[in-house]
Design a protein around this nucleic acid. Structure first.
Lengths: 353, 353
DNA sequence: TCCGGCTGTGCAATCGATTGCAATAGCCCA
DNA sequence: TGGGCTATTGCAATCGATTGCACAGCCGGA
C-alpha cells in the first residue's frame, strides 16, 4: 500500500519526463507485464486482440517510447553495434560506413563509430564499447596479426572484419578481392604495351597492403615480366606524402618504369606529386593506376585510372555477416569477397604513346 | 537466506559472462554499494583508502567493467550523444564529425551517428535516439524553419546545431561566418579586377545557402558592382550536377560573368563541368571560387581557390556547447562563429589576364 | 564517564522492462 | 455436470548499479 502510494507520488513529480510502461498500464487498467507483451511483436499472441489495441492506442496517446537501457539490462542485448574505423576523415571510409549503418539501422540497431588513433589504445576503445554492452563489433582497423582479434574472441563478442582481413582468417570478413584488382591493373597496363611496371605497395602489416602486393607480383610474373622490370617500393602508411617518397625511389632506378601501380588512390596522388617533382608528365611519360576509386579522383589532373571496389556493398555484407554471427555464433566464419572493377580514365596510355 | 543461495548459484552459472559489482564485492568481503562508491570518483571520498585500494585491485583482477546500461537506467543519463548528419559520404562532413566525436569521447561520451535521408524521417530518427536515452543531440541537418527543432525543444533535450543554424536562433550553434567567407571571395576577385561576378547559390532553406547568398550580395554591393553584373542562380541541392546546371544558366546570360563564386566546393566542381561544356577555360576565361576547402580540391585541375572553414574546430565547439547545455540547460543559447580563410590556388586569375 | 559528531559501511529501494510461473475464467466434450 | 484445456492476465523476481538513510564504531571535549 504504502509503496504504491509512494510510487504514484514520484510518478506524478516526474510527470514532465518520459512515460513508462507503468503509465500506459495505469491508463488501461492492466498490469505492466500485459503492456510489455502487447507491445512486443514476439509476445503479442499472448494478449487478447482488443486489449492489445487499447494498449497500443494508449501508448500512442501518451507518446510512450520503449526505454532501451532498461530493456537491454533485462535482456542482455543493447541493440548497439560498435564500429572501429582507422580514420573517419579518410575519404575511402564513409561509403563503407554508410553501407554498414544503413543495413544495421534497418534492423533496429544503432551504431557507435569510434575513430582509432585520435583517442586511446584500440584495446581500451574496445573495452569501452564492451562496457556499453555492444552486441557486436565491426573492425575496419585490424592488422594481419592483431591482439584485438584475440581480445574479442576472448570476450566471446561477435566480430566481423571489413575491408581488411586477419592473417589466420579466424574472423568473418567482407573485403574486396585485392589480388584480382591488381591483376586488372597489371593486365590493363600490359595490354597497353607496358613492360616496366613499378608498384608502390601499402603497409605490409595490413591485409590490403600485403595482398595487393602479392597480387601485383603474381600478375607481372604471369605476364612474363622480369622481376627487375617490376620493382616494388613499400610505404608505412597510406598517405599522399608516403606515396610521393616511394615513387621518387622508383623513378630513381636505373631502369625507369613506364607505369606505376599504387596500392591505393592516396598513394597514387603522391605518385603524381613525385612525377611533378621529376618533371615527368602523366600519362605521357609514366602511366599511373590507383586503387579504391575514392570520390573525386575523376576530377584530378589527369583523371585517375583506378580499381573501383564495392565499398557500400562491403559495408552491407559486413553488417549482414555480423547479424548472422549474433543470431548464431557457432557458424563457421565466412569470408565475403567482392569483385573489383577497372575504371579507365586519363592517367594510363599506351606505352611509347 | 534462500535468495542469497539462489543468487550465488545463478552467479556461478553465469561465470562465463562479465563480472558484476557483486562479484567484486564478494571477493573483497564488502557490500556492493561500497564497491560502487570506491569505483566512482565522485563518491570515493566516502570509502576508506585501504578498502578502496583492495576493491580496485579486485576489480582489475576480475576484469570488471561497469555496465553502462545499468548505470544509465539508475542515473537517467546514458553517456550517449546522437549526431544527425545530412550525408556521411559528403566529404565535407567527416572533419566536423571527427571534431565532435574526439571531444565527446575524451569526456566519456559515445556518439551514435545517423545518416538522415537514407533511412526514415528525421522525426522518427530523433525518436529512436530518444528511446536510446541520448543525453543530447548534435544536428548538422537543420533547415531554417525546421520541425525537428521544435520537437527537440518539446522533449527538453539538449540540442546544438553545427554548420547550419536555425532562422530564429533559438538553439546554440557552431558555424562558420558565411557572410565573411563570401566577402573574402568577392574582395579577392574584385582585387583581381573582376567586375562581372556570378554566384551559384545553395539551397535557400538551409542557412549556409541563404547566408552565403546574402553575404555575396552585400559584398558586391559594397564593392560598387551593379546588380545586373552580379547575377545569382540558385540550386536545390549541394551537388556537382546542380552546380553544373546553374553555371550553364549563368554562362548563357547576355553579360557573361568573368568570375563565378559557388556556395560550396561541390557546386564549384559542377561549375568546372559547365565551363568544359561551353569550351571555356578556367581560370583564363572564367575564374572560380569554391567554399569549404574540402579534401583534395587542391588536386583538381585547376586547383580550386576556395574559402577554408574551420571544420574540426566547428565540431569541437559544438561538442563543447552541447556539454555545457547538458550541465546547465538554463543558459542562454550561444552562437559560436568561426572565422573563414581565403585559400588562393589556381582557379582565380586577374581579369583580362 | 557520557555525549555529540564524524567516518565508514551496510541495507534496501529504485530505475523500466521482461518473463517464468501461477491463477482465473471460460469452453468443450464425455 | 464435472474434468481437463486453453486463452488471458497478474505476480514477482530479475538485470546491474546508485544512493538516501540508518547504524556502528571511535574520537575528543565537558
Amino acid at each position: 500500500m504504502k509503496r504504491t502510494l509512494q510510487s504514484t507520488v514520484s510518478r506524478r513529480m516526474a510527470a514532465a519526463s518520459r512515460p513508462t510502461i507503468k503509465d500506459v498500464a495505469a491508463r488501461c487498467g492492466v498490469h505492466p507485464s500485459t503492456v510489455s507483451r502487447a507491445l512486443s511483436p514476439a509476445m503479442k499472441h499472448l494478449v487478447a486482440d482488443d486489449v492489445a489495441d487499447r494498449i497500443k492506442a494508449a501508448a500512442n496517446a501518451l507518446g510512450y517510447r520503449l526505454n532501451m537501457a532498461a530493456k537491454g539490462l533485462r535482456t542482455g542485448r543493447s541493440g548497439l553495434i560498435g564500429v572501429l574505423a582507422p580514420d573517419i576523415a579518410d575519404p575511402g571510409f564513409p561509403p563503407v560506413l554508410s553501407g554498414i549503418t544503413d543495413h544495421l539501422n534497418a534492423e533496429g540497431y544503432a551504431t557507435i563509430v569510434v575513430d582509432v588513433g585520435s583517442n586511446g589504445s584500440e584495446q581500451d576503445l574496445v573495452d569501452r564499447l564492451i562496457a556499453r554492452g555492444v552486441d557486436g563489433l565491426v573492425l575496419a582497423t585490424v592488422t594481419l596479426r592483431d591482439d584485438v582479434v584475440k581480445h574479442c574472441l576472448d570476450a566471446a563478442l561477435p566480430v566481423v572484419l571489413v575491408n581488411r582481413v586477419d592473417a589466420a582468417g579466424q574472423l568473418p570478413s567482407a573485403a574486396s578481392d585485392d589480388a584480382a584488382g591488381m591483376r586488372l591493373a597489371v593486365e590493363h597496363l600490359v595490354a597497353l604495351g607496358h613492360q616496366r611496371i613499378g608498384h608502390v605497395a601499402g603497409p605490409q602489416h595490413v591485409s590490403t597492403g600485403a595482398r595487393r602486393r602479392a597480387g601485383f607480383e603474381a600478375s607481372v610474373r604471369d605476364a612474363g615480366l622480369a622481376a627487375r622490370h617490376t620493382p616494388v617500393e613499400t610505404v608505412e602508411a597510406y598517405t599522399r606524402a608516403a606515396g610521393r617518397e616511394a615513387a621518387l625511389r622508383l623513378l630513381a632506378r636505373r631502369i625507369r618504369p613506364t607505369a606505376i601501380v599504387a596500392a591505393n588512390d592516396l598513394l597514387a596522388l603522391g605518385v603524381y606529386d613525385a612525377l611533378a617533382v621529376r618533371g615527368l608528365a602523366c600519362p605521357h611519360d609514366v602511366s599511373v593506376v590507383g586503387h579504391n576509386d575514392m570520390p573525386f579522383v575523376d576530377m584530378v589532373a589527369p583523371p585517375l585510372t583506378t580499381i573501383r571496389i564495392a565499398q557500400r556493398d562491403m559495408g552491407e555484407a559486413a553488417a549482414r555477416l555480423l547479424l548472422a554471427r549474433i543470431a548464431g555464433p557457432e557458424a563457421a566464419s565466412e569470408h565475403i569477397v567482392l569483385a573489383p572493377q577497372l575504371i579507365i580514365r586519363g592517367s594510363t596510355i599506351a606505352c611509347g604513346h
